[in-house]
């Protein structure tokens, strides 16, 4: 299968290791990965902040970039960005009165999958330890990000994949379905309420005793990790893709309390 990677802007700029891990996992399954060069961002920061006009060129760019490449499906290591591509892009186009863009955006959205959705529903990954050689000998708790959970209805897909990783002990996160308080510009505009939500999320994570908090969205993980780091908790945050990419031959190191960068593993 030919798979187009949508890295998403935050992973592209701040957490390239999650995109590299995504490529590694897909290639390990024997698929070809392409990276449409024109891609930039899904635009949900603009949409969710009410800047619909400014979102139009961002949406148009994404649609253009993912129309220009030939592929079977597109994938992104983010539930939130995929939800935006599927739900918000047609809405932004409609609101701008651009029926043509709406139709094209809908078509791109239909071919776009969140990583766990692609792995479980399309590529038939049921046992990451066997099928991907996934190995991660650490205690992990898992935060299900809101948009993956509620907009994409990912259900148990991400946690199920984590449970199938050799050596990984998955610890239940209390009040897991509660938002971490990120919400894009919400964390800036309503910084105090956001901080209060983050404090509870961090306390719940720390209560599990896990050394890693895993998730499927680096936006939420940046927020949660930022709080855990400020508290000096010693708990690291890692993307699902990075954990799936980790193998016994080339294990991903868990970043220490000081947040040293993780060794990048490819293939």
């Amino acid at each position: 299968m030919k798979i187009a990677l949508f890295a998403t802007c935050i992973v592209d700029g701040m957490y390239p290791r999650a995109a590299q891990a995504t490529v590694a996992v897909l290639e390990r399954l024997g698929h070809e990965v392409v990276f449409p060069k024109g891609q930039a961002c899904c635009g949900q920061m603009h949409v969710n902040s009410g800047y619909f006009k400014e979102a139009v060129p961002v949406v148009a760019n994404h649609v253009r970039a993912f129309e220009s490449e030939d592929y079977d499906v597109a994938v992104a290591p983010s539930g939130s960005c995929v939800a935006s591509v599927k739900h918000q892009h047609p809405m932004v186009a409609r609101r701008a009165g651009d029926a043509g863009l709406e139709e094209r955006a809908t078509a791109v959205g239909k071919k776009t999958y969140e990583l766990s959705e692609l792995l479980v529903d399309v590529l038939g990954v049921t046992n990451p330890a066997e099928q991907l050689g996934s190995y991660f000998p650490h205690t992990v708790t898992y935060h299900p990000s809101c948009h993956g959970m509620r907009l994409l209805k990912l259900g148990d897909r991400q946690a199920g994949l984590l449970r199938g990783v050799k050596g990984l002990e998955l610890l239940d996160l209390p009040e897991a379905d509660q938002c971490c308080g990120f919400g894009g510009t919400f964390s800036v505009k309503n910084a105090y309420v956001s901080s209060a939500m983050l404090a509870d999320k961090a306390a719940n994570i720390r209560s599990t005793g896990a050394s890693v908090c895993a998730g499927g969205d680096y936006s939420c993980l940046m927020h949660i990790g930022g709080g855990l780091s400020r508290q000096g908790s010693g708990v690291a945050t890692l993307h699902l893709a990075e954990i799936l990419a980790s193998t016994e031959a080339a294990p991903v190191a868990v970043p220490g309390p000081a947040g040293q960068p993780v060794k990048v593993v490819v293939k």
């Binding site: 964390s187 800036v188 910084a191 105090y192 901080s195 404090a199 927020h223 930022g226 709080g227 400020r230």
Partner: peptide
Amino acid sequence: GWTQSRDIP
């Protein structure tokens, strides 16, 4: 507002 309770890597 962000950095009142969160680091950025």
